Computed example of a mutant assay.
Amino acid sequence: MSTETVRTEARPRVSLGWLASNEVGLVLVTAAFVAFFWNATPGFSSPFNIYALTRVLAIDAMIGFSMMVVLVTGGLNLAAGAIGVSAAMLGGWAMQVAGLPIPIAAVIAILAGALLGGANGVATVLMRVHSFVVTLATMSLFFGAMIVMTKADAFNALPASFVSLAKLRSFGSVSGLVYFTLFIGVLLWWLFHHTILGRQILTAGANPQAARLSGVPVERTIIVCHALSGALAALAGLMLSARNGAAIPSMAGQLGMDWLLPAFLAPVLGGTLLTGGTISVAGTFLGATLVTVLSNGLLQLRVGEFWVQAFLGIILLLAVGLDRLRAHLIEKRRIR
């Protein structure tokens, strides 16, 4: 065998498997829709529309993160919208009525969101029922309690410095909120891939019985994930309050229902399995990007709001089908 042949065989093979990844697919599909809307309607490419689109994207991605951290355990958080609005209303009260500094008011709101989310986790563990049932009940409980305590009044005199945070932009048309959401995404990626707690959560989500035998505190990880989900929902609520210039009880729809579709679409499209154990922070952000581009582009084409929602519902059904296919393929790989 010649020296040249040995050198050739010693060279490491470059893997191109990443080209078939879910994230790359989302980038290509999103780019195709951007190109289509860019040419189909002049309003899509305007600086104002790009600014509005990126502001919506930042909040929708944060909502997706809130659901993602519960889905990884095989659970659900239907109360994300109710928690986010309740925490944002508390933050609004702290800023407008109590006169607390913005950072302190924000911390209070985030802690309140984590507390409400943690309560969902505790109830799920103690009652030994699926979090779907628990969060379906607390969705009404949290929202109703917030309406009673605030008398459905909005806090519309928030500090100008708080409202101005949502008006920050870079490159002339990109909302500064996007960078904050990306920062939170990097922290979540680090949590799940470079900490013991993150690895325990992934293990508990993939196989709870095996995780228990390995000494993983499965119940504790469920509570932590729900608390983290509540904190992220509170962040989304604060961002929405800053964008609206007020903390409004109905800013996430009745019972927070308006958050449910983006909450599911972003992580499921991004590759987070409904059965738990697999997560993709980057995929969730890209999934939210695709949904935001589609919604914005269709509205620019003057498609009715009802048809936009119907179209997103169809996408969710397709995403669930892809989720089942991914779960099947992953299970086959584990068996091998």
Rank of each mutant, 00 (worst) to 15 (best):
I184Y: 02
F171N: 12
G198Y: 02
A154M: 08
R199G: 08
L197F: 12
L202F: 11
S161C: 05
K151N: 08
R199M: 14
S175T: 01
G185P: 12
D153F: 14
I184M: 13
L168M: 12
G176T: 02
L182G: 07
K151E: 12
L213P: 08
L165P: 04
A204M: 08
G215W: 11
G172S: 05
G215E: 04
T195Q: 04
Q209R: 14
F155T: 11
S175Q: 04
G172T: 11
T150D: 06
F155G: 02
K167V: 04
L187G: 03
S214D: 12
R199D: 08
P208N: 07
L197H: 15
G215C: 03
T195C: 11
L182N: 02
F180Q: 07
M146W: 05
F171Y: 03
G198I: 01
L187V: 09
A160D: 14
A166S: 12
L188Q: 08
A211M: 06
D153Y: 14
A206Q: 05
G205T: 01
L177S: 13
K151V: 03
L202R: 08
G185K: 00
T181N: 06
P217V: 06
H194Q: 12
R212D: 09
A204L: 05
A166Y: 00
H193Y: 15
L197G: 13
A160P: 06
P217W: 01
I201M: 09
F171H: 11
I184K: 01
M149N: 15
V174P: 10
G198R: 01
P217M: 00
A157D: 05
F155M: 10
F162D: 03
I196A: 14
A157P: 07
L165Y: 01
P159Y: 05
P208D: 07
V148T: 13
S161H: 06
I147R: 14
I201R: 03
L158P: 02
A211W: 01
G205D: 05
S161K: 05
A157E: 14
N156C: 02
L202T: 08
Y179N: 11
T181M: 08
L168T: 10
G215H: 00
L182T: 02
I201S: 08
R169G: 11
W189P: 10
T150L: 04
G198L: 02
S173M: 12
P217N: 09
V148Q: 13
A206C: 00
G185C: 08
K167D: 15
L158S: 06
A157Y: 14
K167H: 11
A211K: 04
L158W: 08
L177N: 05
A206W: 04
H194P: 04
Q200C: 10
P159V: 09
N156S: 14
K151I: 07
W189Q: 03
L158D: 09
A152I: 07
F171M: 09
P217Q: 04
G215V: 01
K151G: 03
Y179R: 03
K167W: 07
H194Y: 09
S170K: 10
F162M: 05
I201Q: 00
